[in-house]
Design a binder for these strands. Structure first.
Length: 499
RNA sequence: GGCUUCCUAGCUCAAUGGUAGAGCAGUUGACUCUUAAUCAAUUGGUUCGGGGUUCGAGUCCCCGGGGAGCCA
């Protein structure tokens, strides 16, 4: 009966190639076929009129992911962007030839069907298929239906397989799209303007990080990929865009782990005539809106490094605490900031925290914050008034000139959103840049300083790490779970696919 | 970059240093409302690559590749 030679019956790739060859020999090329699509799966299910079987006719299309054929009829399911819908195929309806051909379809094949909606005995809304077309043959088999694909490496390298067979992955990655879409709507509703600024830059400004280096042949000049959006967005403030944002990729040539990918997505927002306090309200409204309108819940589950689950509550007011208070509370030393460097180093030794003796005081203190304190801040917390050395782009606090008017929003032990009252005094800004550059004059962005000298309105600015936000809102374990194609070493194994 | 750990059939997983197995998928057959459909039969392996120890290596050792976790 079958055209499949028995000697290849074990090789699913070869069997499918043979089926394709048989189809073509019969004058049908599935890759040249097309089909109608009136509904996505979910919309089709909604279109069913209760109690009126076969009253509504739909055309749906998708990938075959479940096959349950039983003699002269059978149930199958196809997967499309909205999910799955069940189809009922019957020899009496399709005719013998079409039905026999249908039985030769494989998991993974794309088909288009037209038929009417009805409800099965088990209560599932299903398409009674009147006609179908194979519109694309899958030559390789899908991963197993029950356990899905669990091999991390294959999940990342062949994300499409992960998305086909792992419903959780598909939902998580689609949720990311909805989160970003909501953020755009939220900001546009508040009159923010979305812009696009250069990724190729001559000075990597706006943050302290090692950039990727490249070369522009046409100008014979070395360029870097941006590490931050900040300085070009501030130029937009100078140019008269009072409320401006960009959602874009940043690149940092540094470590990779559960919270870091070399390319990652940042949102930066700038609002003239506001300040870091205004950004607090903005970010809380944004996150609470995301929870309410996208997630449908104000609490999400978060798993810490030890695997303990916490409920993060995004509702209500959020904790606000000064950086200095966190440090003095942790060290139990109210006079921590007036201690000598040797005393600080001695303390760190005592708590088994490694610090370099060459570090500045603020670096030692910040090591305590980032290694010992930050990961304990699970509930949404505004850490405010950081030491001025940590950021040269923010305004100095009027009451305490050793700190700046900023917050770092920390959730789930991760820095999710830093915000500043933006520095707009060109002379102070230049002094801060020069102190940071430490004599390396080429690291000072003079073009940005020129812009500031033309006058930048006072403004609040904020960055949000979109990947980290998605980790939190989707309860993901790793940044790789919310990035479609995280960076990996090239695989020799997949370089030459066996055939 | 360092430490730990993993890599076995298309996928998910087994296998005291002693004949590489199972489930799903595939193939063949039965079955006209299934839900991981069921029933019967059956094919399928460069155990990531290379070297070594051993009578014998998926297993132990070394080198290399890739993934993950922790650290830097």
């Amino acid at each position: 009966m079958s055209d499949i030679p028995t000697d290849i019956s074990h090789d699913q790739f070869a069997v499918r190639r043979q089926k394709l060859a048989d189809l073509r020999a019969g004058g049908f090329d599935p890759f040249r076929a097309n089909c109608a699509q009136t509904h996505f799966s979910g919309d089709a299910i909604k279109a069913y009129v209760e109690g009126e079987d076969n009253a509504v006719r739909v055309s749906v299309a998708g990938r075959l992911v479940t096959i349950r054929i039983q003699g002269g009829s059978g149930f199958v399911k196809i997967l499309d962007q909205q999910g799955q819908i069940q189809l009922y195929v019957k020899k009496d309806v399709l005719g013998v030839d079409a039905y026999m051909a249908f039985k030769k379809l494989d998991f993974g094949d794309f088909i288009g069907v037209t038929g009417t909606l009805f409800k099965t005995k088990a209560g599932e809304i299903t398409v009674r298929v009147e006609s179908y077309t194979l519109v694309s043959k899958a030559l390789r088999p899908l991963p197993e239906k029950w356990h899905g694909l669990t091999n991390d490496e294959q999940v990342y390298r062949q994300r499409y397989l992960d998305m086909i067979v792992n419903a959780d992955s598909r939902k998580r990655l689609m949720l990311r799209s909805r989160i970003i879409s909501y953020i755009r709507r939220f900001l546009e509703d508040r009159r923010f303007l979305e812009v696009e600024t250069p990724i190729l830059q001559t000075v990597a400004g706006g943050a302290a990080a090692r950039p990727f280096e490249t070369h522009l042949n046409a100008l014979n000049i070395d360029f870097v990929l941006r590490i931050s959006l900040e300085l070009y967005l501030k130029r937009m403030l100078v140019g008269g865009c009072d409320r401006v944002f960009e959602i874009g990729r940043n690149f940092r040539n540094e470590g990779m782990d559960r919270k870091h990918n070399p390319e990652f997505t940042m949102l930066e927002v700038y609002q003239a005539y506001s300040d870091f306090r205004g950004m607090m309200t903005l970010v809380r409204d944004l996150f609470q809106g995301l929870c309410r309108d996208v997630l449908g819940t104000m609490t999400v589950t978060f798993k810490d490094k030890e695997g303990n689950a916490h409920d993060i509550d995004f509702g209500g007011d959020w904790r606000e605490v000064r950086y200095k208070d966190l440090i003095t509370d942790f060290t139990g030393d109210a006079n921590w900031f007036s201690r000598t460097k040797d005393e600080k180093i001695a303390y760190c030794k005592g708590i088994d925290l490694f610090v370099e003796p060459t570090w500045e005081d603020f670096e030692i203190t910040n090591e305590i914050f980032s290694k010992k304190i930050e990961h304990t801040l699970i509930q949404p917390t505004f850490v405010t008034h950081l030491p001025k050395e940590l950021c040269p782009l923010a305004k100095i606090n009027l009451d305490d000139p050793s700190v700046i008017d900023v917050f770092e929003l920390t959730i789930g032990g991760m820095e999710v959103a830093p915000a500043y009252s933006e520095q707009n005094d060109p002379d102070v800004q230049r002094a801060m840049f020069e102190a940071q550059a430490g004599g390396e004059q080429q690291k000072v962005d003079n073009d940005f300083l020129l812009a500031l000298e033309h006058g930048m309105p006072p403004a609040g600015g904020m960055g949000i790490g979109i990947d980290r936000l998605c980790i939190l809102l989707t309860s993901a374990d790793s940044i790789r779970d919310v990035i479609l194609y995280p960076q990996l070493r090239p695989a020799a194994a997949t370089a030459e696919i066996k055939n």
